[in-house]
Amino acid sequence: MKSTRDELLDKVRAALKRDVNSIMPGVPSTARISPRSTGDAEAERSLLFAEIEKLGGKTRRLTHSANLKDALQDLMRVEAIKKATLWQTTDLKELGIEEILTSIGVEIVSPYASNRVVAECDLGITGADYALPETGTLVLRSSIEKPRTVSLLPRVHLAIIRPNIPRADLHQVFDEVKRDGYFVFVTGPSRTADIELTLTIGVHGPQALHVWAI
């Protein structure tokens, strides 16, 4: 007896008047659109931050990693941070984020703790692998060092990014990440307009998004 799969594919082929050996042309070249053209790197970084701000995100440029402690202290006060979790990347380790947070009295929670425990964190700190200035989008990959829940469950999401991450368009990003098992585009804080079309920030994802460039 034919499986559902084979029956279904046979139906599709019959409807399209194709068979298993029908030639398979590539995607027509007219269906491709070239990437957007970009300004210089500095203009792209400004655009990225401007777009994130438009969506209700908060951005900050830190000229030196030494300023990180002050910035984290500000954030702790403004967002009432008591517990935090973070990516375990070498980049964040080299910046000494965990040590700074501990020194200013923030409790550190392992990102490998249960979802319920991570969800109790006020702050989740990640990096970002790429950024799309046109839309204000951060691209976050997933790995053992970059657990997916850090940017999702805590109330506040802080992404500490490097100046070289902007890419011109989706094309360049997909070229680099398309074989990943998971990646996510984050564009501003979580939002809805489901009740009387009133924009409300912070539904299921983080209520606040902070992006700092070092």
Binding site: L8, K11, L55, Y112, N115, L132, E134, T135, T137, S142, S143, I144, K146, P147, R148, T149, V177, D180, G181, Y182, F183, V184, F185, V186, T187, G188, P189, S190, R191, G205
Partner: peptide, 30 residues
Amino acid sequence: KISTYTSFITGPRRVDGENGPQEFHLILLD
């Protein structure tokens, strides 16, 4: 210009520590 979140999911999680489901099913509906 783009929605807030766009997730790209290829199968279940690859290592335990990254979080994400242990099992992934895709149902193709006619």
